[in-house]
């Protein structure tokens, strides 16, 4: 499985949790960190499980997530700009 990484823009995140549910591998969780607006910020609790599938980013209503994938992986996530 290709390895990936989801980078959450903490200030854009509103802690809605939709990315947590969207991730098929349980990578993301709402952390105990709060941003300046008072929202709990989503973060990679299990980064080792991330495949870079970008379902979290595609689900995020605040466009707060950017996703990276190892170069070995081919194709790109639908819906986002690459």
């Amino acid at each position: 499985m290709p390895k990936g990484k989801a980078v959450v823009d903490a200030e854009r995140c509103k802690g809605c949790g939709l990315c947590v549910t969207a991730c098929p591998f349980g990578v993301l969780e709402l952390s105990a960190t709060y941003n300046s607006s008072g929202y709990p910020v989503a973060a990679m609790a299990h980064p080792e499980k991330c495949t870079g599938c970008a379902l979290c980013a595609q689900t995020c209503p605040d466009v707060a997530i950017e996703v990276y994938r190892e170069k070995a992986a081919s194709g790109s996530a639908a819906g986002g700009s690459t």
Partner: peptide
């Protein structure tokens, strides 16, 4: 070593919704 596969669309401004 990673490639960005999902980024904010270029046609969006940086404003927070």
């Amino acid at each position: 070593t990673l490639t960005k596969v999902f980024a904010r669309p270029r046609s969006l401004t940086d404003k927070r919704f």
